[in-house]
Amino acid sequence: MSAISPCLWFDDDLLEAMEFYTSIFPDSRITGVARYSEAGPGEPGTVMAGEWVLDGRSFRGINGGPMHAGFTETVSFSVTCTDQSEVDYYWENLVAGGEESMCGWLKDRFGLSWQIVPARLYELLGDPDPARAEAAARAMLGMRKLVVAELEAAAATA
């Protein structure tokens, strides 16, 4: 059976990234590391490629050098959280050394974009009362890290 998994291009910090990500998510581990040999093209013994599992999902990565290294917001990973404590946990750990953005988005210290979203947001945005859904959306647009209580309060005032 075939499987699809993301492959991320790093300059030269793949192993550090794999260790960072697997330390944050449950059911995560590094499953393989390939190193350059004497045959090159990289420095013998340095990490060329790796595989890891995050929360049960397979990822691959390469240390491809600076030619194409660097991520943009055009690709991101979304983490749906069951409650505010999960939002806080993933936000605080992933943004460490990175930067906050708007509407639940952040960039981690490797420049990879993440969306940290409480499941409650989807419920509020899908509210059958359009005024409640719009109020929740407006509240979201004004936030960096999403706060469930504030989203609910905004919907309740509609």
Rank of each mutant, 00 (worst) to 15 (best):
Gln84Phe: 00
Lys107Cys: 07
Tyr89Trp: 08
Val87Ile: 09
Thr82Lys: 14
Phe71Gln: 02
His68Ile: 14
Arg109Tyr: 09
Ser101Gln: 13
Phe110Gln: 09
Glu92Phe: 06
Val79Ser: 11
Phe77Asn: 12
Glu100Arg: 12
Asp83Trp: 08
Gln84Pro: 04
Ser85Gln: 13
Phe71Ser: 05
Asn63Ala: 08
Gly61Asp: 02
Glu86Leu: 06
Gly97Asn: 05
Glu86Gln: 12
Gly104Asp: 12
Gly64Gln: 01
Asp108Cys: 03
His68Asp: 11
Cys81Ile: 04
Phe71Pro: 10
Val79Pro: 04
Asn93Cys: 01
Gly70His: 08
Gln84Leu: 05
Glu73Thr: 13
Cys81Tyr: 02
Cys81Pro: 10
Asp83Gly: 09
Pro66Val: 15
Thr82Ala: 15
Cys103Ser: 08
His68Cys: 12
Tyr90Met: 03
Met102Asp: 14
Glu92His: 13
Pro66Gln: 15
Trp91His: 04
Leu94Cys: 09
Ser76Pro: 04
Cys103Met: 10
Glu99Val: 10
Ser78His: 10
Ile62Ser: 12
Gly64Asp: 07
Ala69Tyr: 00
Glu73Met: 14
Val95Gln: 14
Asp108Ile: 00
Ala96Asn: 12
Phe110Trp: 03
Met67Glu: 15
Ile62Arg: 11
Ser85Leu: 09
Cys103Glu: 11
Glu86Cys: 05
Leu94Phe: 01
Arg60Glu: 07
Ala96Gln: 15
Glu99Trp: 08
Ala69Pro: 04
Leu94Met: 06
Glu99Leu: 04
Leu106His: 01
Asn63Pro: 03
Glu99Pro: 00
Gly65Leu: 05
Phe59Lys: 02
Met67Ala: 14
Cys81Lys: 00
Gln84Glu: 06
Phe71Thr: 00
Phe59Asp: 03
Gly64Cys: 09
Gly61Glu: 03
Val79Phe: 03
Ser76Cys: 09
Trp105Ala: 07
Ser85Ile: 12
Val87Thr: 03
Gly98Lys: 05
Cys81Glu: 07
Ser76Gln: 08
Ser101Leu: 13
Arg60Ala: 14
Leu106Ser: 05
Lys107Ile: 09
Glu100Tyr: 06
Ser76Trp: 01
Gly64Met: 02
Gly97His: 04
Val95Ser: 07
Ser76His: 15
Thr72Trp: 08
Val87Lys: 00
Glu73Cys: 14
His68Ser: 09
Asp88His: 06
